[in-house]
Write a protein that binds this DNA or RNA. Structure first.
Lengths: 334, 334
DNA sequence: GCTCCGGCGCGAAACGTTACGCGCCCGCTC
DNA sequence: GAGCGGGCGCGTAACGTTTCGCGCCGGAGC
């Protein structure tokens, strides 16, 4: 591939001027035309590696996710890529999960070693370790859903998300609730539970009418927990699942039990974009606005790249409820 | 960040020796120890940009997909990343779709301009253009599901995939079939149809008992096409959908019509990992073995990076049928 | 004991670009 | 008409590595 030297040979201009042209700085019109012609003829493309080496900006950002297999993470990656591509930034993906997975900190260091200009990090729920040194190495960090992390932050309103679901159920007359709370060892899940508790206290719902069922955050876990709730006497009139897999499990158990929502029991799912479209009636569910999350994260990154020394920002994104038909209105008397 | 010069200052060794060490070449034990100690103390990490500039190998590969939003593409990316990470390769993702999307060729050139060592390309169904010049620039290309492309190829056995589904239906006594064939303008879909036709001819099924319903490759398209098939008199006894979205649409229409598989009609879906888990009974469906595809693609890339001049290879991956309970066995008399 | 050879260390020259500072020229002002 | 300043081009020195060829040293073979 031809380079600046070839252009110089053709135009007689200096490398500085050619460099200026390719960096969008002002160049005499005649020179600009000459460079353009030569570049076209020779097929010159500035060498990204040389640029990165000399200018210390690689125009690359990294995205570190727990696992690329998870729809939520992928959607985040997609959103970030789409937002950053027009700015000429490349996105390197790296999964901290999978078979031969190192821990998140190691993965972050390895990613930083590729000399990305910045990193997005979706931490694994389990490793609440520091990651601080990566930030200290001067790589700008944008964290997703990890409050207090050493960098910019995009937080999901976990409490608010579940709260809006619980409110929806209460407003429909349900007071005997079953909550698929997932794994209380995970911060996100604790937050969601706190959100539910907050609403219940606010509305003065006696806590004995609220059944909690924790389980691993898998569809299998959701199935078991759901089965547990369905077996209660009296049975809760409504179920709320705390994440995607739990929702999936709940739906399966429901179907296997021959029960249907909303006739036999009401159900509010979580974070299930496709699934709800094939449920009849459609599933009422809480949605994490992935596009917004990715968009805000990208914006934070761009701002920080422009101005590395600005103070860290935190953005909290509200969740939304998509109302389907899986929740039944109980009689005021019921 | 400290660099080789700092190590030299500490150890008195030459840059060449230090370079050798970091490239895994043999170095006198004493020197090795000295370098390791110094590197540890100083926190030296070889500068990836300088390496890439000088050695002309960036240790980066690109993955170009039509859209990161699609589960299949994402799964491929995930598989590739996982396979290549242990080899020290970074994966740059780039979507050719989305809002401000350039065409695939432009996207490929832009990706090549970041000086990746190789590129995986999942072409958009619509653009069957050349992409040849990218290959000619010397960037190794691995294509997925695009026969005849100028590079290594991983092909899905589209014909065989649908064929196995059709055979399954025939074996269960269904002869009046409805096929959701999607968009015949798309090569993949034509292949799948050809696979179905092949089996039908082989088994000497009269073609008038096979209803085709084409539609856009969306859930909405699938819904409409499915509604069309359901409205036929007599109605087909079994439906086979040709891709994921069509399957989704078919399930929705089925549910809305108050019909159930397999009691009212049999159904074979396509490429639906999660969905089938919440169907009761589970959905019988054709699966594209994404992991295998990604694995083989990664292997082809590694082989080519090792040996750029070897002749292009093509690998065809068979599809599999996952048998659920959505297909009913008809009486031999039926 | 001499020669030959392989293993390794060394210095210097790239790789292709950007950053820096100087100097020229043109136009404006008093 | 002289002085001044802004706009731009130019040469040079990095950026941090790898590559190349040379040369030394030590061991093996005769």
């Amino acid at each position: 591939m031809a380079n600046y030297h070839d252009i110089r040979r053709l135009t007689g201009l200096s490398l500085s001027t050619i460099s200026k042209y390719f960096n969008g700085r002002t160049v005499l019109p005649a020179n600009r035309a000459a460079i353009e012609a030569a570049a076209e003829q020779l097929g010159v493309r500035p060498n990204a590696n040389a640029r990165a080496l000399r200018s210390r900006r690689s125009q690359r950002v990294g995205v570190l996710v727990p696992s690329l297999g998870v729809g939520f993470h992928m959607a985040i990656v997609a959103g970030i890529e789409e937002a950053l591509r027009p700015r000429g930034l490349s996105v390197i993906v790296r999964s901290a999960g999978g078979e031969h997975a190192p821990d998140t900190t190691t993965a972050a260091e390895e990613l930083a070693a590729t000399l990305v200009d910045g990193m997005f990090v979706i931490p694994r729920s389990i490793d609440r370790g520091p990651l601080a040194q990566v930030g200290a190495q001067g790589v700008p960090l944008v964290f997703i859903d990890r409050p207090g992390a050493p960098g910019d932050n995009v937080l999901l309103d976990n409490r608010g998300a579940v709260a809006v679901g619980v409110r929806h159920l209460l407003d429909h007359g349900h007071t005997h609730l079953g909550l698929l709370t997932g794994d209380p060892g995970i911060w996100t899940m604790r937050e969601r539970l706190a959100g539910a508790r907050h609403v219940l206290e606010q509305r003065e719902i006696p806590s004995r009418t609220v059944e909690l069922a924790d389980s691993p955050l898998t569809a299998a876990g959701g199935r078991q927990a759901m089965a547990h709730l369905l077996a209660l006497h009296p049975r809760p009139t409504a179920i709320l699942a705390f994440n995607y897999h739990l929702t999936l499990g709940a739906l399966t158990t429901l179907a296997e039990s021959g029960l249907r929502a909303p006739d036999d029991i009401s159900l509010v799912g979580f974070d299930t974009d496709d699934i709800d479209t094939i449920c009849t009636p459609r599933l009422t569910h809480i949605i994490q606005p992935v596009d917004q999350i990715a968009g805000h994260a990208a914006r934070l990154m761009l701002a920080r790249l422009d101005n590395p020394d600005q103070p860290h920002q935190t953005i909290t994104i509200p969740a939304a409820l998509t109302v389907g038909g899986s929740v039944r209105r109980l009689n005021a008397a019921g």
